[in-house]
């Protein structure tokens, strides 16, 4: 246990842990938003958008993440794009994961029968409404499993940022190694936080259906309690 409580090691690991959590959370948010947008592009009726989505996925899904970090940290500054290493890491990790989110969503969209979209369109819904109100809610169920794999992989992939000047968990490991602690001990105290993060993400996805359902009940309960006027309107119309 000595490793934890001497030379400020605890603070080092804690800060690394928090940095990994922050990096992962921001990259996850970016990947989710961007990935959803890319999936919408890939199923859209506009050929240019479809092509953009395809190129993005092909480029980012098939390039090693380390290479993406390398490109972000060393190539972009030469083009006068200057961010902190942390921001570069969020972008590289977010852009990379977005490609996977896109493909998971797209495969989910493809499981929803075509007739659902035709019915929505024939009611006069726009492409966006059809996707948001009819297709994605039905795709969500099939998507949940593969999507949890993507977001469990994300915090572990974030370790690469440690090699590119981001003071996260993996870099804390490098510091501890330099200080000469036994490798097995270091491994344990660095792997444990990663395990905690990934397991938490897994649990979150496992209970997501119940969480969403409870949220829906709460919203409905509030709206029913909050608008007694509405029931009167219904009766007045009948």
């Amino acid at each position: 246990m000595d490793i934890l409580f001497e030379h400020g090691n605890f603070a080092l690991l804690r800060d690394g842990f928090l940095q990994t959590v922050e990096l992962s959370a921001l990259a996850a948010l970016l990947a989710l938003l961007l990935g959803t947008l890319l999936a919408a592009f890939r199923v859209s009726p506009v050929p240019v958008l479809r092509a953009f989505g395809t190129v993005w996925v092909t480029a980012f899904r098939n390039t090693p993440l380390t290479l993406l970090f390398l490109a972000a940290v060393f190539t972009l500054p030469r083009l006068d794009v200057r961010f902190s290493p942390f921001t570069f890491a969020v972008l590289a990790l977010g852009f990379y994961t977005a490609a996977f989110v896109c493909e998971v969503l797209r495969s989910g969209i493809n499981t929803v029968p075509l007739g659902q979209a035709e019915a929505a369109r024939s009611l006069g819904m726009t492409f966006g409404q059809t996707l948001r109100l009819v297709i994605l809610p039905q795709a969500a169920k099939t998507v949940l499993g593969p999507m949890s794999s993507v977001f469990i992989a994300l915090p572990r992939n974030s370790a690469i940022a440690g090699a590119f000047s981001v003071a996260e968990l993996f870099q804390a490991q490098a510091t501890l190694t330099d200080l000469g602690y036994p490798i097995a001990l270091i491994f344990f105290w660095v792997a444990l936080p990663y395990l905690t993060i990934s397991a938490s993400v897994g649990l979150l996805f496992h209970y997501l259906p119940q969480i969403v359902a409870a949220g829906g009940r709460l919203v409905r309960g509030l709206s029913e309690r909050g608008t007694p006027v509405r029931t009167e309107t219904v009766e007045a119309n009948q």
């Binding site: 035709e118 019915a119 369109r121 024939s122 009611l123 006069g124 819904m125 726009t126």
Partner: peptide, 9 residues
Amino acid sequence: ARLRAEVGM
């Protein structure tokens, strides 16, 4: 889309 709304299917 607006026109489709006026054609029931």
